[in-house]
Structure formats: structure tokens, C-alpha cells
């Protein structure tokens, strides 16, 4: 029903003049996809896929082009934290802050492997609570690629975005005079023609897979659009519709 309500031709011909309503409809569809796979439930994936895939062009499924996302294959992570170092080096992250972390979970009762590492970063949510909360649009969802960006000169330092973010992905950067966060290395790499993020490039175990979720040829597309392995997101209940997916294998 959502897809039918869109004027597809109009939007594809003139993507920069998409009306607010059309954009919202796009967004809803993107959210459906994200939300469904986020659940990690094979049943829900199948049922939603039946609704979405037969109808759709890429634009109908995802609101951004490219629709950047990251798939994290947690069981491959060895906890070396080179991704964190790569991020710090690429983005001049100060010692008191972080854009990405590798969390460590210990399960002493587990058989075999007793430790697990969970990389976390900004989830570049489709429905970002930080963007809604910011009073001066200093943080915003990039209309082209969906990355949650910062406009440093506008940041008033109220830090409500820190409180709003369900992923603890923000901190106040004294040197920038603004809140800082992961931008998928847009400023330091993607905007300069590179295709990967610093954390992905630094990872020796190919844990982090970065790419365009709207491109069926991309690795992230294939990792997310499959039924064999569960795919999940963190803190799904907040309904932020994150774009960081977790899987194994």
C-alpha cells in the first residue's frame, strides 16, 4: 500500500524535488525494510519480503542513494581494536572521546569461546532521535546518503543530542567546538573518493562491511537480504531504524 501511494516516475525523474510527503513515504519504506531485518526473525523477514520485494525498484526500498550502512560480523571480531585506532587517526578523535568502540562481553559459563567482541558506532538511524532533538539543526540527516552529519558552526553545545542518542554515539569535542560523531568517514574519506571507512580499512578480520544498501550488487545488500543467517540491530525498541546491522559468519 505504501509503495502504491508513491508517484514513482515523478520521483525518479526529479529526485532533488521530492516533496516532503513523498520523502516521508520513501522513509517509511526504508524503515519497514530496516525494521524488519533488524528483528532478526526469519519469519518476519519472509513475510515482509513478500510485501516489499515483488513491487520494488531500489528507490522504493531505501530512501537514500547511496543508502550507506555497515554490517558487523561479530563472531569474526578478535578485539584487536585496530578499527578504533584507524578511526582515531583518520578523524582526529581526541583521547577523551570516541566515534567507535569495541565492547567486550565475557560469558564464563559458555562452552568453548568465552569472550565476544561487539563493535559499536553511530547507527546513522533512519529515524534519528538526535536530529529530532537538536534545536538548531546542527545535526541533520544528509538528504543524499542518509548519514547523520554535523554542521559544527551551528552547534550550541546543549548536548541534548547526547542524551537523545540511544547508542551513546556522541561526545562534545572541545577542539571542534561542537558535538562530534561518526560520519562513516564522509569528511575524511568518502568525500575524497574513497569507498571504505577507516575502521573497515583497518580491520584485519573483515568484521566491518561498509557499503550501499540500495545496491543489490553490494556486499552489505547480500549480507542483509538473506534468510540463512540472522541479522539484527541494537536497541530495536527505540524505533530509531538503525543502519548498523549485526550478523555472524
Amino acid at each position: 500500500m505504501i509503495i502504491k501511494s508513491l508517484d514513482k516516475e515523478k520521483m525518479m525523474k526529479n529526485p532533488e524535488k521530492i516533496s516532503e510527503m513523498d520523502r516521508r513515504e520513501f522513509l517509511k519504506i526504508g524503515l519497514v525494510i530496516t525494521g524488519v531485518f533488524a528483528g532478526g526473525s526469519i519469519v518476519s523477514v519472509a513475510s515482509a519480503a513478500e510485501k516489499i520485494f515483488p513491487n520494488g525498484s531500489i528507490a522504493e526500498k531505501y530512501p537514500y542513494r547511496p543508502h550507506y550502512c555497515m554490517v558487523i560480523r561479530v563472531d569474526r571480531c578478535i578485539g584487536c581494536r585496530r578499527c578504533v585506532e584507524g578511526c582515531v587517526a583518520a578523524n582526529a578523535v581526541p583521547s577523551y572521546g570516541w566515534r567507535t568502540l569495541v565492547l567486550e562481553r565475557e560469558a564464563r559459563q559458555a562452552i568453548g569461546q568465552k569472550r565476544e567482541f561487539i563493535p559499536v558506532l553511530c547507527n546513522q538511524c533512519n529515524n534519528p532521535p538526535c536530529v529530532r532533538a537538536c534545536p538548531v539543526t546542527a545535526t541533520y540527516k544528509d538528504p543524499q546518503n542518509g548519514i547523520v552529519m554535523m554542521d559544527n558552526k551551528k552547534c550550541i553545545g546543549c548536548k541534548i543530542c547526547l542524551a537523545a542518542c540511544p547508542y551513546d554515539a556522541r561526545y562534545y569535542n572541545e577542539e571542534r567546538g561542537a558535538v562530534d560523531k561518526c560520519d562513516f568517514c564522509f569528511e575524511t574519506r568518502l568525500s575524497r573518493g574513497e569507498k571504505s571507512t577507516a575502521c573497515q580499512a583497518a580491520c584485519p578480520a573483515d568484521v566491518r562491511v561498509f557499503g550501499d544498501l540500495s545496491d543489490p550488487r553490494s556486499r552489505v545488500y547480500r549480507l542483509v537480504h538473506q534468510l540463512q543467517k540472522p541479522v539484527w540491530v541494537l536497541k530495536k525498541d527505540t524505533d530509531a531504524k538503525p543502519n548498523i546491522f549485526y550478523t555472524k559468519g
Binding site: 534545536p135 539543526t137 551551528k154 553545545g157 546543549c158
Partner: peptide, 18 residues
């Protein structure tokens, strides 16, 4: 942190959902 920016951007760059 930057109250002067508030005086400018509260009006120049409002976020009506905030």
C-alpha cells in the same frame, strides 16, 4: 557551550520538531 550561536541559529536554523 556556545550560547551566542543559540541567539543566531534559534531563528536562522530552527528545528520545529525539537
Amino acid at each position: 557551550e556556545n550560547p551566542l550561536r543559540l541567539a543566531v541559529y534559534l531563528f536562522c536554523s530552527p528545528n520545529f520538531t525539537s
